[in-house]
Design a protein around this nucleic acid. Sequence first.
DNA 1: CGTCCACAGGAATGACGGGCGG
DNA 2: CCGCCCGTCATTCCTGTGGACG
Length: 418
Amino acid sequence: MDGEVDTLDDVFDQFLNNNRFFKDRDVLRHDYIPHKLPHREEQIRHLGLIVAPLLKTERGSNVFIYGKPGTGKTAVMKYVINRLVQKAKEFGAPVKAVYVNCRLAGTEYRIFTNLCAAVDIIVPFTGLATGEVFDRFKKGLEDKRVSFVVVLDELDELIKSRGNVLLYELTRINEALRNSKVSIIGISNDLRFKELLEPRVLSTLSEEEIVFKPYNASELQDILWERAELALCSGVLLKGAVGLCAALAAAEHGDARRALDLLRVAGEVAERENAKVITENHIREAERRIEHDRVIDALANLTLHSKFVLYSVYLLGKIKIYSAITGDIYEVYSEVCEEIGVSPLTQRRVSGLISELDSIGLLSSRVISRGRYGRTKKISLAIPRSPLSEVYSNDGHLGQVTSFIPTCLKAKLGKTKN
DNA sequence: CGTCCACAGGAATGACGGGCGG
DNA sequence: CCGCCCGTCATTCCTGTGGACG
């Protein structure tokens, strides 16, 4: 009895005294916008110059921002926009801004819905024609009499799947507006993005361009120390750990987001272990956990059939020295569907699902030609197997069939195929 | 050197759930 | 409530193709 009370006491006390590690955990989250962005002074200045005219109710240039993930595009942009809006408030300039992540929004329709919300127009989440939503946005904007900054993050994703229409409409909107103005800030991860744009859109959109280069390891270290000072108690972070953290992230195209994630999770691991300091081992453990969580998360959001397709690749992966091709996956997939009692989709659709899984990063696929034996796609898992088997055994559908082995798979198990 | 495999991946079309205006 | 139009997902039909085999 006493022991039990003491145990709990320990747990609670430990939690309350947790400030041994974190002063402010949120500082290490990547959506946190710091007051200082090391090695980005130039970009901040540049973007500042571009949006400054809005304070005098002149139209700012449209800007195009390029850079790989985790190079500080979003942070710099949000930082500058926040300051702009703040300054505008001081001077009574009518400046408003919206931020939309095109990939998260998904469709043109939902992007316009977001834009409408920013000018206090409520539109239904479905049912209207896209053009109708756009018109309402235009109308609302005109009534507001503001300088409106539209930030479109991950714009490349939208263009790749939907084309230029939205951007074209948006770049032309100023022609129709008398009382309000729109400035567009487009952000893209893909450096070749320009090639996808129609010339007429490109010329209006990229009046200005800002490029964000990846951080190198030493710049990443600066960022980590900067944030660690705010987020962590002094003395808990070892130099070696920061070095490793920066090195791992630098290897992954200089991704600062990655570096911060690593550090935060490493801190949590160390905290739970009751360690005194954050070491290189904690960083490595963090690397494993982040990957693990990413996979679990991605899997949880898959549709039924995507899940089955992935499972089929997983099953085929049980055969050594074998990488799956579309046809085999479809065979296995069909049998899995049969076993569970769901009617399978067509091969065309499954092929599409494979491409989707590829772009999420769960599968990696590559078109190959086997000459006489046709042209197909070579497909393998892009993620470790262990989290998968864990998820599958707990899955509502697949949990029941874990012992089921498709007959076409049995046939292959014996043979050795390329 | 041509053939022909086993698909890739584009286009058109349909089924479905949902909001709109009347 | 209805008829209409929308976006999304899936199907059907289609043309295109890299390269081993004969």
